[in-house]
């Protein structure tokens, strides 16, 4: 596959466009939230999956 012609005037102009800056306060909040979620211990199994497992066993036994 041939590479893109980076000397194309339109692509060159696009590559020089300045990047809009995100809100730094909001970025800090997102990082703090992400960090908090990652450090929190994970549940052994998500409740929906646990429910599906229990329901499938009950269904297999013919109780539901």
């Amino acid at each position: 596959m041939t590479p893109v012609d980076r000397d194309d005037p339109i692509l060159r102009r696009l590559s020089r466009l300045p990047m809009p800056a995100p809100d730094p306060d909001r970025s800090d909040r997102v990082v703090a939230r992400g960090r908090m979620k990652l450090t929190r211990p994970q549940p052994r199994m998500a409740s929906r999956r646990r429910f599906a497992l229990i329901y499938s066993v009950l269904h297999w036994r013919g109780w539901v």
Binding site: P20, A21, P22, S27, V31, R35, T39
Partner: peptide, 29 residues
């Protein structure tokens, strides 16, 4: 391995690019 420092580093590296992409795609900050 759910390393919070890795998340912060990924955010620092990619957030400005992701935001710029979305801002121009959505045309609303």
């Amino acid at each position: 391995g759910r390393d919070p420092d890795a998340f912060e580093e990924a955010h620092r590296l990619f957030h400005p690019r992701i935001f710029a992409f979305l801002a121009r795609l959505a045309r609303r900050r």
